[in-house]
Amino acid sequence: MGTVTTNDGTSIFYKDWGPRDARPIVFHHGWPLSADDWDNQMLFFLEHGYRVIAHDRRGHGRSSQSATGHEMDTYAADVAALTDALDLRGAVHIGHSTGGGEVARYVARAEPGRVAKAVLVGAVPPLMVRTPDNPGGLPIEVFDGFRAALVANRAQFYLDVPSGPFYGFNRPGAEVSQGVIDNWWRQGMRGAANAHYECIKAFSETDFTEDLGKIEVPVLVAHGTDDQIVPYGNSAPLSCELLRNGRLKSYEGLPHGMLTTHPDVVNPDLLAFVRE
């Protein structure tokens, strides 16, 4: 574990496990979480001989609670600072939700040789919010509601999200895990309220259409069809259409947080793609 300091003085916390000469896999977490959300996948890939790296986005987890930079251009620049500092080459970048947007923006701009493949899991691209050009998106009122709930009672909001739609625990017959809910709350509450508030705009209103079109490396787009946070129909299939070398993997009935609820299903598919 360590930190990297960006050009504006922000300290980015990261974990770095495994052999330094092994192929690196970099994990990008969702809102409002931290690198800890990837513990299962990091241990899984570590067992298979990979070098695994995950960072806390600025304003999240153990990274600096910066006053500025809570938008995708800076998020991608922070990733570039990390990959440059660790001199990562031929890496696989895997992003979940907001982290998928971060991956798209970073990979589209990465130096040649830095990235070999990418994976977008339950990811926000191409664009979440409804616009005239994106009629299938979610109304801005949805995201205004997120902001209002965060301001009114962030601690309660960060219990309501994982208890309900994030992991599909609001579905009939769902096996609810209080530990998973508490861990989501723990990660979220460690971050900065201002960063989380501004990140809602970043993940919902950033248009990744041009980024996806620029990416030349192979990209796996994995998404649960019962994703209540980033609806399947307006995300994964559209991203694949924009990618030059994209592959869609749909998981029937699985939720937004399927990496946590169904790692036994998803992890082997990620490994198979990385090994190709």
Rank of each mutant, 00 (worst) to 15 (best):
M1K: 13
M1I: 11
T5R: 11
T5C: 10
T6P: 05
N7F: 12
G9Y: 05
T10P: 03
S11I: 11
S11A: 15
F13A: 08
P19N: 14
I25Q: 10
H28M: 11
H29F: 11
W38M: 08
D39V: 11
Q41A: 14
L43E: 15
L46P: 00
E47K: 11
R51Q: 09
V52L: 04
V52I: 06
I53E: 05
A54Q: 01
R57G: 02
R58Y: 05
R58Q: 07
G61K: 07
Q65K: 15
S66N: 14
H70E: 13
H70D: 05
H70W: 06
D73E: 15
L88A: 05
L88W: 07
R89C: 07
G95L: 06
G99H: 05
G99A: 07
G100D: 05
G100C: 04
G101P: 04
A104T: 08
R105S: 08
G113L: 09
V115Q: 04
V124D: 03
P125M: 10
P125C: 10
D133K: 09
N134Y: 08
N134Q: 13
P135M: 03
P135K: 08
G137V: 04
L138H: 01
P139R: 02
I140W: 01
D144G: 14
V151G: 00
N153V: 07
N153F: 07
Q156K: 12
Q156T: 14
Q156A: 13
Y158P: 00
L159F: 09
L159K: 13
S163Y: 03
G164N: 14
F169H: 12
R171V: 12
V176H: 07
S177Y: 04
Q178E: 13
G179K: 10
G179F: 01
I181W: 03
I181P: 01
D182F: 01
N183Q: 15
W184A: 04
M189I: 09
M189D: 00
R190M: 13
G191K: 00
A192F: 10
A192Q: 08
N194C: 02
N194A: 14
A195M: 09
H196E: 12
Y197F: 15
C199M: 14
K201R: 15
A202C: 11
G213F: 09
K214D: 00
E216C: 01
A222V: 03
H223P: 09
G224E: 00
D226C: 08
V230I: 15
Y232C: 09
G233L: 14
G233H: 11
A236P: 02
A236T: 06
E241G: 05
L242Q: 10
L243D: 06
R247F: 09
E252D: 14
M258G: 06
L259C: 06
L259S: 04
D264E: 15
P268H: 08
L270T: 00
F273C: 11
V274E: 05
R275L: 08
